[in-house]
Design a protein around this nucleic acid. Structure first.
Lengths: 215, 215, 215, 215
DNA sequence: AATGAATGAGGATTCATTCAT
DNA sequence: CATGAATGAATCCTCATTCAT
């Protein structure tokens, strides 16, 4: 295959992926039908199966891509930080920024939390796992550095905490339906909720809260 | 209707509800088809609709029941506590116990976090909302008491925190698929995960960690 | 059975019948479910089957009752007329009156035009047939008298015409969905339609139009 | 899509449409289930939904097609006529012919008189309405011409009469169940009924009956 | 590689009718 | 007589996946 062909193929795959991501963000995982993806990506239904083994694999690919974007965003945000505490702040702030600037990606990420993995061998699943784990390791390293530097509690388990935080983060920005009902019922705004959640997470990690988090 | 008839009807409703709960726990919300419920509950499909308006309402009823069980469990656990700190500990420990003793209920609760409410007027939805809110208020009051008693941070927003905690709790005990993969990949046991998560939550709330939480 | 019991039974049957009639009028033949009838008539579903063999039979009974009412109305209206022409006018005017005063009955009558007879042996079907045929014979006799008196065309086939007129009448007052769309599309009011239809029917029968029909 | 493909698709659509028409004619609107259509058209259930949005739309399409056939038949029949009276006769005779030669279409047309329109935006509904209205306008114009030429009553309302006639025609050829019972009960043949009905309709319209209608 | 028509199993819901009490 | 819970076949519609072109 000529490299031009190659490139074209790659582009089509991306187009499908982006369309799928958009639909997942807008209508949820269950709302993403292969037909809709095909139509909106302007390809035939059958074509989807040339690029993705099945729906499950496409979802995994979306999940991988969207997490890669998130990771890249944070990586860049961190690059100029030196202390662990700074990095953690950068991750926190970066997430807020990412959430505000890429609402579609964020919606997709949280929708896909509940993705059921059908075939762990699937390269897209592997890819996805790789991305998520990268993030976990990155955060864990910040904790380790923070512990060394005395800003993070010494008894904190870095990796496990990082894994726990993934969900806590997601939830802080995108409450479940149940939580939305509770917030509404108790007349609490989403902004308030986000602030409180962030504070709680910070407090669980830091020895002394950095200034910005005193809110 | 004779009271015997009445009782029998009530029993059948319970039977359907329990079957539905079991299936939700085992196969998720989407995996709960009306046919499966009917078959496993050993009734005809049509019978389900005698007791529940539609699938959505049945799910809400399951959600209400399962949260009621949880609430009752905690209520009893709390009843002998006096200080806010004690109560919060009792809630934490009670949740662990409940999770260990009623794995099915717990699975169902977490599966149903993402339940979409279709008709807010539905009595079962109302019932569910009532239960969840009861729990939130109960925890919030413990925080308030704890603040008064000096064990809980003064700047903590009781209700909002209680709402956030619902999800954090759920997640601590039943990680998402994604998290399970991460835990496995990093060779962290579920017990370890639960311990770390509990510690993080405690730390975010307490002024000084109670002894039991020093893990 | 005591005659009091007998009466009570008769009353219950009437109640069911009236409820069924109402529902047919409001929601059409297909919209009349046995459950709805039972609920609205405040009896158990099973009770319906004590009084009517099946749904089909209940519909036939409704059809019979509603036509009986119509017939009685016209009979009374005619009773003081002497000439055939007068009687026919009385039937026409009576129908308009009946239609205006008993909209429910009228709706039911027209809805039931398309009733499919499943079992011709059914007493209710027989009853229904008897009523409709009574009406046909009554009109036919008016035609015959009119012919004798020189007001109705001699070459008119009394019975066949009377049968044809049943439908024409019904249609004049209750156009089909299709016709309603056409009327709306051409901005013709129902009143106009009724007037035109009546004029056409009169003209097809009379030698010289009676004054009232010159519209 | 290749034009061969295109043609094939068109053919399949027609096949489905024809099957649906046949079933409507034989078993009525309510008797036409999607499953029956699929089976008899030898396609899968899902295939129906590739060609028609839903059952309601399929029924509308059948209604449109069957009326188009009827219209075309009459258009051709009229084409060589010059006077309004001739055209009206041609329409009457044409309808008899159509009824005799296309019994299935005729049955379908009359069955569909009671079609409930669910979505007026549906192209098939629009199509159907267009066809029916075409017929109404055509007949109305004949009346207008006839009035000018002095053969049709001057006081006749062309469009309204044409709308009324649609039903009258339909009924003349395809009596309702009720009427069939009455005819049978009074030993009147369908031919006789048709003749009488035609005569009545003619008489309601013409100033002087054309010879052919003196029956 | 790409297409998109076709498939058909599966899922929610309704409703006439029965029957044990 | 009366009840009303229970039945389960029937119906509409969806959607992941395949395959002939």
């Amino acid at each position: 295959m000529s490299s031009r062909m190659q490139r074209k193929k790659e582009e089509k795959k991306k187009a499908i992926l982006n369309t799928a991501e958009k639909i997942v963000a807008e209508e949820g995982m269950a709302g993403m039908t292969m037909e809709k993806v095909a139509e909106e990506a302007d390809v035939a239904t059958g074509t989807l199966y040339l690029y993705f083994k099945n729906k499950s694999s496409l979802l995994a690919a979306v999940n991988a891509q969207v997490n890669r974007k998130y990771n890249n965003y944070l990586k860049e945000n961190i690059s100029e930080c030196t202390t662990g505490s700074e990095k953690l702040s950068a991750i926190g702030d970066g997430t807020v920024e990412f959430f505000l600037n890429n609402p579609q990606e964020w919606r997709a990420i949280t929708e896909l939390y509940q993705m059921k993995v059908q075939n762990p061998e699937d390269p897209n699943v592997q890819d996805f796992l790789h991305e998520v784990n990268f993030m976990v390791q990155m955060v864990a390293e910040c904790y380790i550095q923070g512990i060394k530097e005395g800003t993070v509690r010494e008894d904190l388990d870095p990796v496990t905490t990082a894994i726990y935080n993934r969900m806590a983060f997601g939830n802080a920005f995108t409450p479940t339906t149940e939580q939305k009902m509770l917030l509404e019922h108790n007349q609490i705004t989403q902004e308030r909720y986000l602030a409180v959640a962030s504070g709680l997470m910070a407090r669980s990690v830091y020895k002394v809260l950095p200034k910005r988090h005193k809110n």
